[in-house]
Write a protein that binds this DNA or RNA. Sequence first.
DNA 1: ACCTATGTTGGATC
DNA 2: AGATCCAACATAGG
Length: 288
Amino acid sequence: MNMPELPEVETVRRGLTRLVKDATIDHVEVRYPKMVTPDSDEFTAELIGRHIDAIDRRGKYLLFRFSGGVTMVSHLRMEGKYDVQPEGSPVTKHTHVIFHLTDDRELRYTDTRKFGRMQLVPTGEEDRLMPSLGKLGPEPTEDTLTLDYMVTIFGKSHKVVKPFLLDQTKIAGLGNIYVDEVLWLSKINPLTPADDLSREQLITLRKNIIEEIKMAIHGHGTTVHSFSTAFGEAGQFQNHLHVYGREGEPCERCGTIIEKIKVAQRGTHFCPKCQPLPAAAIEALGND
DNA sequence: ACCTATGTTGGATC
DNA sequence: AGATCCAACATAGG
């Protein structure tokens, strides 16, 4: 299972930097044209002979910086993956774009569900030409996600906190797994309206978001279900999921059975005892 | 075999 | 503007 939230995308970025930074594109093969913008003829023509200067990331987006002022914005969506193979090694039916490099290697994009997208834009124009990129909220780091900003945006919204945190224009990079995790860590019920959170709760939530993302990046974005197997693996730090995918299991803090509900069409895991709904929110629900 | 679930985003419809 | 639902697609599991 690949889980491309921010830490996973950052891990991909670092891997690609190590493997293909300073490589040069010989030619590009697009096997599933819907995946690329502009159309595949232009897309492939535009990339011939370009050098990969750098690979950047913003939120869950990868930005391939090519020579000559061209950037490829790539989003992995649910299941997109990059890998690098020797020229001509067998491809799977889910390999949709192949970047043939001049050094007899291939950078391949594979995506079972075909949700991923890649688009070429002039470097520096990506925020203007791609609104989803331009409107991204701050990165979840100590320096960029300030408490003042948290207090301001949460105070302005009645939206419940789970979809609020999934909104990339508020904070960039959080996905379904890490949102459930940080809400559990912060003892906040996923149905709590954003503007019901106290300053103290926002301080806790902010700290947990920043810490969780940092630790997940440090763990190479590897989120594993089993904590016991992760421990004892020599030299390997792996992340531990406290609630995601653990419905029916006892909460690690209090032993109460973890529940799974739907919130804004997304599977949502929480501990009903550690993460109680505030009385005000229960009343609001009762009025439906 | 049928129905539901799945990490994400963006568009349509109210 | 904001919420709500659904679409893109393939596969796994009950």
